[in-house]
Amino acid sequence: MKPVPFEYERPHSLKAACQLLADDEDAVIIAGGQTLIPMLAMRLARPSRLVDISRIDGLSGIEEQTDNITVGCMTRHAEVERSPVIASHVPLLSAAMPWVGHAPIRVRGTIGGSIANADPSAEVPLVLVTLDGTITLSNATGSRTIPARSFFSGPMMTEIQPGECLTAADFPVWQHSRTGIGFREIAKRHGDFAMVAASAQVSVDATGKCIACAIGIGGVTDTPLALPELASSLVGTAFTDQSVHDAAKAATDNLSAMSDPQTSPEYRKRAATKLIADALMAARNDALETSEGVTT
């Protein structure tokens, strides 16, 4: 478990980092290293060069915008997990954080790394697609912003182009006063990759009727998957256990679920149906209990 030989660079500017990436298509970024280091050790990743972005100013931090929260790519999971700004504005992300690996992994692992790695079962990408957030990609000459829902193209595959560095993710903030969240996950052991994860955010009006809804699943298909049709079908309704279950069942019926040596696709679909329904009901109940709302 020793990596193949590689070069190592630690640039001090984003531009320099992107230039290094542009100049060498076998170069990869190292941020927290929680996926890359084991991949290197097992020689599954064989990059020519590691570009360490940990000493570049401005890539870490949590920033409040008008309608969203910007999280810099080098922000550690542990910082997000403890952040009062995230807790009050993007509580779904807070709820997902304890499910990301184990505590020592969250101390090193970064938000940008988790998104760029594009593991279909990862929690941060799931929350981002659920909330319909955006991702900022930079290269040596400028930057572009794309919706998270079109960023993930397959397992461990994204729209990042050669010479680009993922620099930030924007998580939308809902303004409805009565908003609740639900996050559910089943993994083989605590801290393992999700076999299925479901994240939901629901807003209700004064009568308890759903006025906004977002739902997504991870670990089931080859990318984190938002279910906007399911979400919109529930807007305007009063949730019941049966209606939510039926809607969840309909949403998962035709999914092409992944399998692994220990997990059948059928299991993933059954569990997804249940966890979608559970997450939605939890979000709705959470919203009903909220009088002041989760936003400022």
Binding site: K188, Q262, S264, E266
Partner: peptide
């Protein structure tokens, strides 16, 4: 007795 296999058996 693994989780997914147990669920499959029940189903």
């Amino acid at each position: 007795i693994r989780t997914a296999a147990l669920s499959d058996r029940i189903a």
